[in-house]
């Protein structure tokens, strides 16, 4: 279809929490070596999409492949930066330790991280400008520093594809620029980076590819082509912005009811 390989291919993915559908028939083809934003309103299913690709949630229908193979076989090619608020930052551990957790996947069961892992972790911390904080307790970090720590943890995973859930949340402008710089370096090294992003202002500046998501995939492609007002209106404007002429204004998909029709 194109000259480039696809890093991630999602076909006809549908997912429901218990009986509440959150993702409907999503198709996604992410070429290798791009920096892609996923945008959409709160509750659009962005986190859910990432978690499903990472095999943390089981889809009701659809197929997901990473470089042409199922995720399970390609796990080591993928790194993940969860939403910062998803962990207890008062946990008794320090920055270096958290970063080393990124090595656990390669270590496998029972084996303890060694000197090499330590050096890799320090290296990653240097990259994100946190080398001086290696031995700092994690509760004593600012939001931006927490985010950099998570970023470093993903870096030591040494993956081909990076998934990041709102890495700019609660981060100041300087840190945001530093992070985006890093992501661009990753892209330059041929990695694929997928970022859940909330700031529509910066999409064109930061990313070269974008997926607009609101329960359905509204559009996906190069920013210059798909990041249009029409698509944004479809994503943020209408209720679920799909076929719906009746529903407009601020309603969110939170009010989605289970699909009880069809029979």
């Amino acid at each position: 279809m194109t000259e480039r390989r696809f890093a991630i291919e999602v076909e006809d993915l549908t997912l429901a929490y218990q009986d509440k559908p959150v993702l409907w028939d999503i198709d996604l083809h992410v070429p290798e070596g791009i920096l892609m934003a996923i945008v959409g309103p709160n509750g659009a299913g962005k986190t859910t999409l990432i978690k499903t690709i990472l095999g943390l949630l089981k889809p009701a229908a659809g197929r997901i492949t990473i470089y042409g193979k199922p995720f399970v076989a390609q796990r080591k090619l993928v790194a993940y930066v969860p939403q910062r608020g998803s962990v207890d930052w008062d946990f008794p551990t320090n920055v270096l330790d958290v970063v080393m957790m990124g090595r656990y996947g390669r270590l496998g069961w029972v084996k303890w991280p060694g000197r090499e892992d330590r050096e890799l972790a320090m290296e990653a911390l240097r990259k994100v400008g946190m080398a001086n904080f290696a031995h700092r307790q994690i509760s004593q970090l600012s939001g931006g520093q927490q985010q950099r720590t998570f970023l470093a943890r993903a870096l030591v995973q040494d993956a081909q594809i990076y998934f990041m859930d709102e890495p700019f949340q609660g981060v100041d402008a300087t840190t945001e620029r530093a992070i985006i710089q890093l992501l661009k370096e990753l892209r330059a090294a041929g990695k694929t980076v997928v970022v859940v992003h909330h700031d529509l202002q910066t999409v064109s500046e930061y990313f070269d590819w974008v997926t607009l998501l609101n329960v359905r995939r509204i559009a996906s492609g190069p920013v210059s082509q798909v990041f249009t007002e029409e698509n944004l209106r479809l994503t943020y404007g209408g209720k679920v912005a799909f076929l719906s002429k009746t529903a407009v204004s601020q309603s969110t998909p939170d009010t989605l009811q289970p699909a009880s029709s069809g029979g």
Partner: peptide, 17 residues
């Protein structure tokens, strides 16, 4: 190592397999 990871960041542990 596994228990530590599980207690700190369950989702990340799951993503590692």
């Amino acid at each position: 190592k596994e228990f530590k990871l599980l207690s700190f960041d369950r989702d990340f542990a799951a993503s590692l397999g």
